[in-house]
Amino acid sequence: MTRNGPIALIFHSLVVLFMLAPLAIVCLVAFTPENTLSLPTRGLSLRWFEAVFRHPDFVQSFWNSLWLALLSATLAVVLAVPAALAITRWEFRGRGFLNALFLSPLIIPHLVLGVAMLRLFALVGATGSFGWLVAAHIVIVTPYVMRLLIAAITGFDRSVEQAAYSLGASEATVFRRVTLPMILPGVTGGWLIAFINSFDELTMSIFITSPSTVTLPVRMYMYATESIDPMMAAVSAIIVGITAVAVLLLDRVYGLDRILVGQH
């Protein structure tokens, strides 16, 4: 790390301030006792949080989003672990293609994915199905999991596995007792990133949610197009809170600098 000079320090502080200020303001506004979006000047109130939990649509969307994020993150990890192992360790035909395929959702705009998925769902008659929504989210979160897993597996000393193997362990035992625990930070990190991405996803979900599967960001978007009141701020604060907890956990188990800067 290079030391920052005073000008760079001011610049960085401004950037951070610029990025954090809206979040901080939204979270503050969520505690306003007023009926309009305003900073709480006359004391703090939880009335808008209460309003959120009283609002059946928001509650349902909250659970939808939570389940969706839990399921898609978990299934993406289950899918990505063997895929990442195969791509990093074996030479086979179509390896490069498979790698590109798994990472391609990263560069396809979610808008395009949304339209494509909408068509696909209509074709297979799955419009409005929660299972297919999960599948669509798996597609967009898997690349993140793959990236982290490939990094974890690439920096892996194969002789550790050989040592276990030579001590009489079967291939399955080597995977369970040695490989998996050693790539666990990558697995957990990947899962958390997938969770955050799925929980926050709006653009694609707008196209493929049905009234019963509407996610929290989509619900917010729908609500906000009609009216803006401090309840929006309260929902935002909840999303920010959940994401922040996930990011803190991620930093704990994997280290944010490893993901963002690629340091080890």
Binding site: G168, A169, V178
Partner: peptide, 19 residues
């Protein structure tokens, strides 16, 4: 197979189980 030979091996990198 290597896991049926029962040989003891010490690797250059030691290859201890870190966890």
């Amino acid at each position: 197979k290597a896991n049926s030979r029962g040989l003891g091996i010490v690797f250059q990198s030691y290859a201890l189980f870190p966890h």
